[in-house]
């Protein structure tokens, strides 16, 4: 599991990779929260294009980051969700909390 963070023009992008479960959610949370705390971005993009597996621990992770971004007046974008992960995201109703972008390009931030 890995997370690569980039900040550009107020958008913090977390490129996630590997498997997101309870075991590795903590590490991702700590890295994302540290970066978001330091940079106070307007948008947090969680990019799932390289994620092979996610269970409900990932839902908790997204909900927690939503609350964090809400507290600093920003939004969360869930980008490039693989179909099987989008199923869990929909089941959890996360599409009501975060914007879902199917073809997010992190080079251009749109």
């Amino acid at each position: 599991m890995g997370v690569r963070l980039t900040l550009r023009e107020g958008t913090l992008t977390a490129l996630l990779s590997g498997e997101i479960d309870h075991h590795c959610a903590k590490g991702i949370r700590e890295e994302v929260d540290k970066a978001a705390g330091q940079t106070k971005p307007r948008r947090l993009v969680l990019d799932f294009s390289r994620v092979q597996f996610m269970d409900s621990s990932g839902v908790g992770l997204i909900m927690g980051r939503y609350k964090l971004m809400q507290s600093i007046g920003g939004i969360v974008i869930l980008a490039n969700l693989p179909e099987k992960i989008e199923k869990i995201v929909a089941l959890a109703g996360l599409d009501r909390l975060a914007r879902i972008e199917r073809n997010w390009d992190h080079e251009t931030n749109q």
Binding site: D55, S56, S57, V59, G60, L61, L91, A92
Partner: peptide, 8 residues
């Protein structure tokens, strides 16, 4: 706690 979704 906070970071658990309750969706298991």
């Amino acid at each position: 706690g906070e970071e658990r979704s309750g969706l298991g």
